[in-house]
């Protein structure tokens, strides 16, 4: 039999990265601070996960300004959307498979 967790994406092992992706799936664009507030994280912790997602090409970073303050916003890429949907399907597959057995 096939490995049941073989189709899961390693990048989404982290709950934080899954959280970021879930939020970006339905919010076109969201700022660093809003993400931090929604996920209840510290700056450093969130930043490292965002860099990881960016390096994988799953999210896009836009650096902007509100007055003089920097305002960094994030959005999902096509590749990110596909990877996350595949990951969700794999999760669903696992649950369905277990119910059958």
């Amino acid at each position: 039999m096939k490995n049941p967790i073989g189709n899961l994406n390693k990048v989404f092992d982290s709950r934080i990265r899954v959280g970021v992706m879930s939020i970006l799936m339905i919010n076109q664009e969201i700022s660093f601070n809003d993400l931090k507030q929604l996920l209840e994280l510290t700056d450093g912790n969130l930043a490292s996960h965002l860099i990881n997602l960016e390096e994988n090409g799953f999210i896009k970073v836009h650096k902007g300004f509100i007055g003089r303050k920097t305002n960094t916003t994030y959005s999902i890429t096509k590749a990110g959307e596909k990877a996350f949907k595949d990951h969700l399907e794999a999760l669903e597959g696992i649950i369905k498979g277990m119910n059958k057995g």
């Binding site: 709950r15 899954v18 959280g19 879930s22 939020i23 799936m25 339905i26 919010n27 969201i30 809003d34 929604l38 996920l39 969700l88 999760l91 669903e92 649950i95």
Partner: peptide, 13 residues
């Protein structure tokens, strides 16, 4: 994980 995702989606929107 799926419940987490659902909660985050709802909470952020």
């Amino acid at each position: 994980t799926l419940q987490d995702i659902r909660r985050m989606m709802e909470r952020s929107s």
